[in-house]
């Protein structure tokens, strides 16, 4: 039965949270890329990379918010 419980937990907010955190880490990585491009005086590439990084950051924050809402639905059900 532990397998089924694990699957049930996986259906909840965990995949969303994992995806959100992974995207957050990746966006920070891309933003650091942007800085390193600017160090090599590649201005347009750096600005474009920065734009990509901030878009990824906002996507990750949206995923984290979705995860929080799903967690909210689950958490209060367990309390009852």
């Amino acid at each position: 039965m532990s397998f089924r419980r694990a699957v049930g937990r996986l259906r909840g907010f965990t995949p969303l949270l994992t995806a959100g955190l992974a995207l957050l880490a990746f966006s920070i990585y891309v933003l650091m890329w942007s800085i390193s491009y600017m160090e090599r005086a590649m201005v347009a590439t750096s600005l474009l990379t920065g734009l990509v990084g901030f878009s990824l950051l906002s996507a990750s924050l949206y995923l984290l918010r979705l995860a929080a809402y799903v967690y909210g639905v689950d958490a209060e059900r367990e309390k009852r």
Binding site: L61, L64, R65, A68, Y69, V70, Y71, G72, V73, A75, E76, R77
Partner: peptide, 13 residues
């Protein structure tokens, strides 16, 4: 996000 994780509310979610 932090507020939703600390004070989860089923109705609002």
């Amino acid at each position: 996000v932090v507020a939703l994780f600390t004070l989860p509310s089923r109705a609002a979610s």
